[in-house]
């Protein structure tokens, strides 16, 4: 029993949902995997929860090279991993990251929209989406707007959503084939939040070779390090260039110490991991 009184709504249309959500104290739920934990800890005290899972259009998924991938808010992580091979094929770094969220049971309920809406600095699905230039379609009673994912977060647990506004879908442009890696360090291999997460994506590895990098758990929000990307663009990946790249990534972090790790460790890993990923991808060899 959750030590809190609140009401429960399950609208079947978006209009109805947005109507209820426009009222003060109402919060949306999808997989409820983060929300129930927060309710139980009384970190959230809503008047009511609005379950969006009965709204058909939020379950849609589509992919085309022209339009990219559009993930409806209610699509679960395991649906993306198991039912839509386009995800693994076209967005491998994103695929790797969502496989590392929680446990199998969690991923049967958890959604990417929920992971984004929860706005934890440790959200594993976010760094890869940042490297793929993802956008969010937000809707409210007042209308809709599309925003860049990189402009969405404002602090730990904080974002630009207004009362009554929800994430309707996630739009991930397709910019060509990509390779890369999501490297998650955590205290235990099974279910744990990231001590640090690094997404390194290489768009068009055999052509223009555009290297992108974003990190979780090293700043108040997940971050993408454009400065490091600008530095490495077009350069031959010599040990010196890669080292400088990693130093720029590190310089852009501002980690803290918490139960999962110290700021010193995270800061060090923000330098080690970008190099390690490039090495493991076979993009450069360290001269010893």
């Amino acid at each position: 029993m959750i030590p809190l009184d609140f009401s429960y709504f399950r609208p079947t249309t978006l209009e109805e949902a947005l109507d209820i959500l426009s009222e003060e104290g109402m919060i949306p739920i999808l997989g409820s995997t983060d929300v129930v934990v927060k309710l139980r800890a009384r970190r959230l005290k809503p008047k009511g929860v609005v379950d969006l899972k009965a709204i058909e259009e939020l379950h849609s998924f589509s992919f085309s090279k022209e339009e990219g991938m559009v993930i409806g808010a209610a699509v679960t992580m395991n649906e993306l991993i198991e039912d839509h091979p386009e995800v693994k094929e076209n967005y491998p770094v994103f695929y790797q990251a969502i496989k590392k969220v929680g446990a199998y049971q969690t991923r049967n309920r958890a959604t990417v929209a929920g992971n984004i809406g929860n706005s934890s600095p440790a959200a594993d699905s976010v760094p890869p989406l940042l490297t793929y230039n993802a956008k969010l379609k937000l809707v409210s009673k007042e209308g809709e707007r599309t925003v860049e994912l990189k402009d969405f977060f404002t602090g730990p647990g904080k974002n630009i959503l207004k009362q009554g506004e929800i994430i309707h879908s996630i739009i991930v442009p397709y910019e060509g084939p990509s390779i890369g890696m999501y490297y998650k360090l955590s205290r235990i291999k099974a279910v744990d939040l990231s001590t640090i997460g690094v997404a390194l994506t290489v768009i068009d590895p055999d052509g223009k070779r555009d290297i992108r990098i974003a990190l979780a758990s090293v700043a108040p929000t997940p971050i993408r390090v454009f400065e490091a990307e600008d530095f490495i663009r077009g350069k031959e990946l010599t040990p010196e260039v890669v080292d400088e790249f990693a130093k720029i990534v590190q310089k852009n972090t501002s980690p803290i110490t918490d139960t999962r790790g110290t700021k010193e460790y995270r800061y060090e890993m923000a330098y080690v991991l970008p190099k390690k990923i490039l090495r493991e991808l076979g993009l450069y060899e360290e001269v010893s």
């Binding site: 739920i29 997989g31 995997t33 129930v36 934990v37 929860v49 049971q105 049967n108 309920r109």
Partner: peptide
């Protein structure tokens, strides 16, 4: 744990294993 970390509450829900401690009853 009551937090979705231990899996002791796992049930099969519409064919899929889930943590029943993280589902609100009305859902």
């Amino acid at each position: 744990c009551g937090n979705g970390e231990c899996g002791a509450c796992t049930v099969i829900y519409n064919g899929k294993p889930v943590n029943s401690c993280l589902i609100l009853a009305p859902e």
